[in-house]
Design a protein around this nucleic acid. Structure first.
Lengths: 246, 246
DNA sequence: CGCCAGCTTGAGGTGCGTCAAGAGGAGTGG
DNA sequence: CCACTCCTCTTGACGCACCTCAAGCTGGCG
């Protein structure tokens, strides 16, 4: 989906219509949103927002992947969120951004200037409620991730990340096969390390280890086949069969 | 504040009136809440909710401290949230609880049955908005904590936790002194370890180390004096002067 | 007084980080 | 077509921060 294609897109035909912050809106509410929305695209590697910056827009990821990261003075960085299509960026009622948002692949966002959006939210409970729901989902995902960061081994961390990415992929592309899944790994080893609280060397080693024990097959460095999801989930140390994650 | 004292408490006199989910309510809205609320108390060590249980109430912590924890099959546990007075428990719109909630000290909660609360929320935007705001704050705190868990050293982790607890204390008891702060550590070494993704031995060692270098003074095992907050925050590795945290 | 939960401290092991060298693949230019 | 560069990724050797196991201390309470 390219930007020119999207510029003329009606909300009713939007690919994230049923999952995004607008998913609960009636047609008249959608028309209101339609009048204040605009699309923006970002190239892979480009920053979308810097931590501390004044935020003058909010919006949804339409296509592509972006990351939320925090950085310490000495350069240590930790990814604190992965933004996939339909995920919301920005916090109504807040001035500055709390984290760096960076496009990992090419990204298209559906944006609203902040003030008009906040005004609209006040008189449109469907939006406010959906946003609350999405925020609660993100909170769950963040807490799930705290267990990964705090208590899992490197191998379990890698398995957890792969399981989440694989399942996201399944749920989007209705690749329904319960056993085997194949997907593109859209993160570099370094990005994976930043997400997992590891170094990129450790990520590489554990990927090799999982490959060696047959849990995953690397069709290329960035394309992963999971012959048996059950096995992967077991490696992740999860009792839940991996549902969760907003 | 004991339970008998609280049972007859008017919302307008409530100690968490200005911070809890009801803080934005007008007097008539408060009266509505008053009619459906009830108090419950839990002894230190008691579970408040088990993960997976049906949740039939939501509520606010009035006094005491509770913890949100996740546990893996093999017993590894990670604390994913610390509930202090005014914090909200439960998620409107969800069936089951996602985490174990345990009272760390004696706890008194102001509860609402879930269904009536959800109904009231639909017609009371002040509550819904405040809840969104509080959820965003929690999300920020969770993400802040992801950096702690993923990238900080044991010493920095301890310092981060102490800094948060100290600052919470200051903001409640208007202990305004910018330099020196003293507070009760209401967590065991083990609970601290669960929060920080460490073992209790490492917590103990790093507490001793911080004591030895004069960053903290232990008036007793559970009472901590911070002679200079600046120093503590520096040890935590934070560039932010510790504002944050809802 | 003895008991027990919570805490401290030590000695030794290990998982992951650090540092360093090199392999693979994509793009550019001759 | 090769030569060259740049970037990502892999692999190895080594060290350290933190975990594990174990012993002993402290203070509150019967």
């Amino acid at each position: 989906m390219t930007l020119p294609q999207l510029q003329s897109l009606q909300c009713s035909d939007c690919p994230i219509r049923h999952r995004a912050v607008c998913s609960r809106c009636e047609t008249d509410e959608l028309q209101m949103l339609d009048t204040i929305k605009y699309y923006r695209s970002f190239e892979a590697g480009q920053p979308i927002i810097w931590s501390g910056d004044q935020m003058n827009f909010v919006g949804s990821v339409v296509t592509g992947i972006a990351t939320l990261t925090q950085t310490m003075e000495d350069g240590r960085t930790q990814m604190v969120g992965l933004l996939l299509p339909s995920d919301f960026v920005g916090r109504p009622g807040r001035e500055g951004a709390a984290y760096d948002v960076v496009a990992t692949t090419d990204v298209v966002m559906c944006c609203f200037r902040k003030k008009p959006f906040e005004d609209l939210m006040l008189e449109t409970p469907h939006i406010a409620h959906r946003l609350l729901e999405m925020t609660l989902d993100e909170l769950d995902a963040a807490r799930e991730w705290m267990l990964v960061l705090g208590r899992k081994t490197a191998r379990e961390k890698i398995a957890s990340l792969l399981a989440i990415l694989a399942q996201r992929d399944v749920s989007l592309s209705k690749n329904a096969a319960s056993g085997e899944v194949t997907f593109d790994l859209k993160l570099t080893r370094e990005a994976m390390a930043d997400y997992l609280g590891l170094t990129l060397e450790t990520v590489s080693r554990q990927m090799s280890a999982l490959k060696k024990s047959g849990v995953i097959v690397l069709e290329s460095k960035r394309r992963v086949k999971v012959p048996d999801m059950r096995l992967l989930i077991e490696e992740a140390g999860d009792d839940t069969d991996g549902g969760v994650v907003g």
